[in-house]
Design a protein around this nucleic acid. Structure first.
Lengths: 172, 172
DNA sequence: CACCATAGTTCATTCATCGAACCGACCGTG
DNA sequence: CACGGTCGGTTCGATGAATGAACTATGGTG
């Protein structure tokens, strides 16, 4: 979409949230970051998003405090974009929306989310049914599901063919 | 904004969900419908959305099965837009995102959500803490919170100054 | 009949996205 | 040290969506 950006009249926390993360592509960038994507080029290849838009979105998300930009090597200088605590707290929103899409718009799940401790699959509310808790992100593993795409060949897609913990860097 | 509409490459249930509800204004329309707004003119006045956009969105949401359009009086002919079961299932997404916005972007909550049975306020996961369940929508009451807007004067805003059950028609 | 209300559609302007081309820093190689 | 390649951007013209004001259609009200 192009979400124009502001919802001026709406004195509502949902509208404020949407001013930040409601623009086209933004929530997909955050989803990728939850999966462990960190570098500009990896977001670019996985999302097939125009470079200018990705650049604008990452800049805005850093500005808003959802990501930090961190130099991870000096020569050549390279930065990575990592979710802050605030950004990480969007996980329940991302998860419940993806589950909704899965129930109503897909035939089979493309990814499955499991609690690392006990191995059980998370329920609709991101709770681990046997344990009765919402696991921390570091205790959640993404696994490929039966409906998974076979077409895409970018590094991120390939890396996600293996089970992987959320937030762990996905690529070297 | 303009959210372009499709995320072609993304074989992912989140992307499919965003193709439906990721466009500008769409999630706010759904939030209003959860509050009990049903008529074209009420969405219009409360959201201050351009008429053409509201018309396009409602048409698309009916098409997609998130709303039904129902004639509620014959003379003059008037239709109302009501959430289907599928649309209602977006409640957890809407709620968790609004709560996120409340924690990080507002000082005080503008609306509070209580379980009708026991009167307790819902937690971050839309669960009623004493009861340990996620109440059905009909068992949730929206109440005005301390941060509430005093400016707006449209019918919907005024009606929401009183406690009100979700989905119950907000206006006569 | 004049006038109002509701629910739209039409249309010109403005603004965001798109995608290809370009840029600049740095590396490795010969 | 020239050459080509990679990474992470910025720039720019074309396209498409959102905006807001004006207009249409239908039916009621006084």
């Amino acid at each position: 979409m192009a979400l124009g950006k502001n919802y001026d009249g709406q004195d509502c926390s949902l509208a404020k949230a949407l001013e930040l993360i409601g623009e086209r592509w933004t929530l997909l960038v955050i989803r990728d970051a939850l999966y462990g994507v960190r570098r500009f080029g990896d977001f670019l290849a996985h999302l097939e998003i125009p470079r200018a838009v990705l650049s604008q979105r990452l800049g805005m998300l850093v500005e808003a405090g959802l990501f930090t930009r961190r130099r991870y090597q000096e020569s050549p200088p390279r930065d990575e974009y990592v979710l802050t605590e605030i950004g990480q707290e969007l996980w329940p929103t991302v998860y419940t929306l993806a589950k909704w899409g899965e129930r109503h718009l897909s035939r089979e799940p493309m990814r499955l989310f499991h609690h690392v401790g006990c191995g059980a699959e998370l329920d609709q509310g991101a709770v681990c049914p046997p344990c009765g808790v919402r696991p921390a992100l570091s205790q959640i593993e993404v696994r490929p599901g039966p409906g998974l795409d076979r077409e895409k060949r970018d590094q991120v897609t390939l890396a996600l063919r293996q089970p992987h913990r959320l937030l762990e860097p996905l690529l070297p």
